[in-house]
């Protein structure tokens, strides 16, 4: 992990509430898909943890939902704005465990880290199926980007305005897959966990303080002891997960 200055290269509305921001800077500490960036914002005491969607040699992309004051402030940042951020935080997904036909399931704001994961798995020669769940068609994003990468993409919407009507789990029936990767709101993770036929990795979210494993603000009680979501997570192995509700 490193603390670096980033320049906003672009920041645009992708779908309802959803923005894509490209940040130029030193991304050398990013090791795996599923890691996150912890962004300092003027006027806000705590940093904002945002999962990394993808990266190149000199920039990274985040896709975030403007759902609170911090992310609304981010949505207003113009090209050229400077941000300080800790980058390359968290453990990220382990692509070695995927098997030949991994299934990736994302819901809403949980979809972005699956983009780089899809890219890596395809580079590794895997046959990737991605289920992307949205509330409705106007919140959908990145569908063509996943398709262009070469993944088999299935869309679900809660209101049926696009793809399969229902939840991501409604699209899991009959799929043939070797491993499960999931990221999304906790009820979705639980539903996927209950339905998945394979081992897998699940990316969690929690309110964070420091982002570097010190303050114990985002601790999760797992089957194998406590996990700091920011440092030991956000990705947990299926067998570690202990549902709290």
């Amino acid at each position: 992990m490193k603390k670096n200055k980033f320049i906003v290269k672009s920041n645009r509305l992708l779908a309802k509430y959803t923005y894509e921001m490209e940040l130029k800077g030193d991304i050398s500490s990013i090791k795996r898909p599923g890691q996150f960036i912890h962004i300092e914002l003027d006027g806000f005491f705590l940093r904002r943890p945002i999962s990394i969607c993808d990266w190149t040699a000199s920039s990274l992309t985040i896709v975030y939902k403007a759902v609170g004051r911090g992310t609304e402030y981010m949505a207003g940042l113009a090209e050229g704005a400077e941000l300080e951020a800790l980058v390359g935080l968290g453990n990220g997904f382990d692509t070695q465990k995927s098997g030949e036909k991994p299934l990736l399931i994302g819901g809403g704001a949980g979809i972005p880290p699956l983009y780089a994961l899809t890219r890596k798995l395809l580079e590794n020669g895997k046959k990737v199926t991605v289920v992307l769940g949205f509330n409705s068609a106007d919140e959908a994003f990145y569908i063509s980007k996943f398709t262009t990468l070469g993944a088999n993409v299935i869309i679900t919407t809660a209101d049926g305005s696009l793809g399969v009507r229902g939840l991501v789990t409604d699209a899991m029936d009959g799929l043939d897959y070797s491993y499960t990767y999931a990221c999304g709101p906790e009820p979705m993770l639980k539903a996927v966990y209950d339905k998945a036929l394979t081992d897998g990795q699940y990316s969690f979210e929690e309110r964070m303080g420091c982002g570097i494993g010190v303050c114990m603000g985002c601790v999760y009680r797992s089957k194998t002891g406590y996990k700091r979501i920011c440092k030991d997570g956000p990705v947990l192995e299926k067998e570690e997960i202990l549902w709290q509700t």
Binding site: F44, F45, E206, R207, V219
Partner: peptide
């Protein structure tokens, strides 16, 4: 182990 999450909240000029 401490308290259940959420354990952190933001405030104006603090937490």
């Amino acid at each position: 182990f401490g308290n259940p999450a959420p354990r952190i909240a933001e405030a104006s000029a603090g937490m």
